[in-house]
Structure formats: structure tokens, C-alpha cells
Design a protein around this nucleic acid. Structure first.
Lengths: 241, 241
DNA sequence: AAGTGTGAATTGATTCACAGCC
DNA sequence: GGCTGTGAATCAATTCACACTT
């Protein structure tokens, strides 16, 4: 961090910018979509400036955490004033790649697939439902949310033609690994998996999972602690039974 | 915390057991459902003993993490051998309260509500679909997964009669806060929220959320970094526009 | 020899608290 | 006076590495 010559200014700024962008902690990245959503709401309400306290309260996080998070993106606030809603929105949007339109393929057009296809936030947040795929021939040709359901065999072609990089697995568990393999083979590098199975994919492919049963079980665990910690059978060797 | 007399042994063991159970880190709790699911699979395959390495590989976590996680529950493994699948399954099940049957109410019977109601893991993992509620009169009386859809006005009564403590919000965003208020008023203390809004609830109510758009945006963020970090417009004051 | 259980070390996330700027 | 930005401190999670048990 030696700042000796004026000419290093540009190189330094470039370096700083890259570092700032490269080094965003995972926990922060995971909250950016939340901030983005809340800011969209504020903008819609005509709010033009917001303090970290107010924004944090609306997003349900602590003000310190919010400020720290935003500081990783850059210094987009004004001391004594707050953040410009529109500006911050733009910056977070850039960071999340919302300016682009990511084509997404959804595999599995059961109830969940329908729910996903019809999900409004889907199209309004930088994603485009590029293709719907299902292995059940009776569904082929059906149009959901303006997109025709295609056979699984067409997956590779669809991914190529639409330049899909994100795939969503909304099939039954049994089919999930097979679908993941097909997605990877087709060139998809990010997968959102709704099936309750552990997928095995090459390390360069990123998988995120949404698991209803796990979420419920986590709630149940806490519920159990809250309601009657002393009622839990000890289950330690020797006692009971 | 004085340990002066031999007679404190029993009290100490009790204390240790409670402490072990009370002090399970959140990150560990969040993985227990995963371990449970993987173990069920192993048990179904007739596997009776498993090492931390094998179990970790199947669950997609590091062996050290797995062992540390399990150590919070107690010492249920055998050195030089591994873990008894059935025993470990029982212990994790107890910890998660899977031995009980938690009645759950799902509010909102659109595609997502249908998907949830028909989700197999739901009933097979310690939960019971106790009630389905929707505000749309045209859906009332419809039977989904063996449960009749009831009007929103019946919520309080259903929660009381079925002793529901967990509620799932599968409504459009606009209705989510209203539904949350109704659930809380009815006595529900744990909520799983699929609507992309920040719910405000009393502090004693636990909310977990599942947000499709956020998950996709997190994937998109990483995708953007992977593919072309240098193509990101700087967007730092002065440049462009 | 194999493999768990766990202190110690490390890495990451959150919170504190206040200097700096408007 | 108000509010951001951020080092420093704290707290939590993960990984290391090895003593201990079978």
C-alpha cells in the first residue's frame, strides 16, 4: 500500500476495484438478493434515500451487518445522509448480474415445475425461462407460462441453442442424478436442485439445493427444544428402556 | 460449578447430557437432516456399519466436519470400526424429533401448495399434513393428497384442533404477511415461508425462508465471476454514462 | 491397522465502537 | 448532529492432526 508516485493511481484503483469485487464473502453474496428486493420495494414506494438503520430493519438484518455487506461493494453511501436507493439498486444489480438475462432450463414439469415456471420473480430478476423439459411424453407440447414442454432428449440441443448456463431440477428424487448428469453433459455449470438427494457433479459445476424436508426438520428441532427440553428421552447408554 | 464431592457424578452426567443436547451449533443442526436422509438410504441398502469417511463422502461433506457434527450428539461411533447405521439413525432421529409427528398446515394451494402437499418426504419424515388452507373459495372442498382444502377463516380452528405448531406459507407475496399474522394469532410458532418477502413476526416465532430467486441470483453471481470477471463494467464514479 | 473423538489452530462471519465526512 | 465506512474484537464454523480405542 505504498502511494509514492501519482501515476500508480490508475493501477491502484483498478486493483482495488477488482479486489473489492473478487473478495465478497459468501455470506454477503447470499444477502445481496435480499437487499436488492427490499430496495426495489423502496424505489416503487418512491423512496429516494435510505439509512442503513432503516434498510436493515426492512431487510431484517442488523445495521452493522448491512453496512459491512455494502462496504464490500464499494462506498456507495453518503455519510450523514444514507444511501441513494436507485444508485445502490444499480450497483447491487450489477454485482448480481441482473442487467444480463440468464437463460434457465427447468427440468421436471410437475406441480413444482409449474410453480417455478409461473413464478413471477423468475422473469423479473434477470432470468428467462428458456426451456421446460420433462421425460413424460404426455406432457410434451403442453405450454406452461408461454414455454412449450420438450422431451428430455432435446436437453442438449436446448441448452446449446439457448445458451443456458443454469439448470433447475424439479423432478422426483429418482431422476435427479440422471438429470444432473445430462445437464452437465449439455454444458450447464450451475444447478439448483429441489430433489432431496446429494448430487455428484464435477467440481467446476456449482450446485445449490433447496430441501423442504430439511427446513421443516430444522424448525422441528428448535420447536422441540423450545417446548420441552426436559421431556427428551435421555437415550444415553444404560438409562431407560 | 464446584466439583468437590463424589456424589456430584450423577448430576454431572445429567448436566453433560443436557449441555451436549442444548449446545448443538446451528450449522450442525442444519446438516442433521442430510445425515439422516443419507443414513436411511444406507439402511435401506442393508449397510449396517459405516465409517466417517464413507458417510461424509455420501453426504458430500468433509470427514472432519461430519465427525465433529456427530460428536455434538454424543459418542455413538466405535473407534477402529465406524458408526452403526441403525443406532446413529435412531439418535439423529431423536435429536430431530422425528419420532414425533409434527402436524403442519400449508397455506396456499396453488402449484406450490400442491407440490408441497404431494411431497413424499413430507409425511415420511416426522410430519403430517394436518390441514390445507386457501383463500380462494373455488378451491374449498378440493381434496389434495387426502386433505380437504379449507377456507382461510378456519385457520385458527384448524390449528387448535390439530395442534399445529408449524405453518408453511405458499401464497403469493401480497398475502404472505397477512397469513403470517393469522398463523401467529392462531398459535403457530414456526413458519416456513416460500414467499419472497421479509415477514415481521414476534421474536418468539421462528421463520425460515426458501427463496427461489435468491438462490438463482447467488448462482448467477458465481457464474458471472467464473465466466468473465474482466467484462464487468467498472461502474465506479465518473466512468461511463 | 483402522477410524473415532476432540483439543488446538485456522478461517470466516458478526458485532462493536468510533474516526471521518456531510 | 447524523450516518457511513471500517479497523479491531468477538464469536462461530471449519479444518488439522493426533491421542486413544477397538
Amino acid at each position: 500500500m505504498f502511494r509514492t508516485f501519482g501515476e500508480t493511481d490508475v493501477a491502484e484503483r483498478e486493483f482495488d476495484a477488482r479486489r473489492a469485487r473478487a473478495g465478497i464473502p459468501e455470506a454477503t453474496v447470499a444477502r445481496l438478493p435480499l437487499y436488492h428486493r427490499v430496495l426495489v420495494g423502496l424505489a416503487d414506494d418512491g423512496v429516494s434515500t435510505v439509512s442503513s438503520d432503516a434498510l436493515a430493519a426492512t431487510a431484517g438484518v442488523s445495521p452493522a451487518k448491512l453496512r459491512k455487506d455494502l462496504s464490500f461493494l464499494g462506498s456507495y453511501g453518503t455519510r450523514g445522509v444514507g444511501y441513494d436507493v436507485r444508485h445502490l439498486l444499480t450497483e447491487i444489480g450489477l454485482e448480481l448480474g441482473i442487467t444480463l438475462e440468464w437463460p434457465v432450463v427447468v427440468v421436471g414439469v410437475g406441480h413444482l415445475g409449474h410453480a417455478l415456471a409461473n413464478y413471477g420473480g423468475f422473469t423479473s430478476r434477470g432470468f428467462r425461462l428458456a426451456a421446460l423439459v420433462d421425460s413424460d411424453p404426455s406432457r410434451h407440447g403442453e405450454v406452461v407460462s408461454g414455454v412449450k414442454v420438450r422431451p428430455a432428449a432435446d436437453l442438449a440441443e436446448l441448452v446449446r441453442d439457448e445458451q443456458v448456463v443454469i439448470g433447475v431440477i424439479a423432478t422426483p428424487s429418482e431422476a435427479a442424478q440422471e438429470v444432473a448428469d445430462a445437464l452437465v453433459a449439455a454444458g450447464v455449470r450451475s444447478i439448483l436442485n429441489f430433489a432431496p438427494v446429494v448430487l455428484s457433479v464435477p467440481s467446476e459445476v456449482e450446485v445449490r439445493k433447496v430441501d423442504l424436508a430439511s427446513e421443516l426438520q430444522i424448525l422441528a428441532f428448535h420447536e422441540q427444544r423450545k417446548s420441552a427440553p426436559h421431556l427428551i428421552p435421555p437415550a444415553v447408554g444404560g438409562v431407560g428402556s
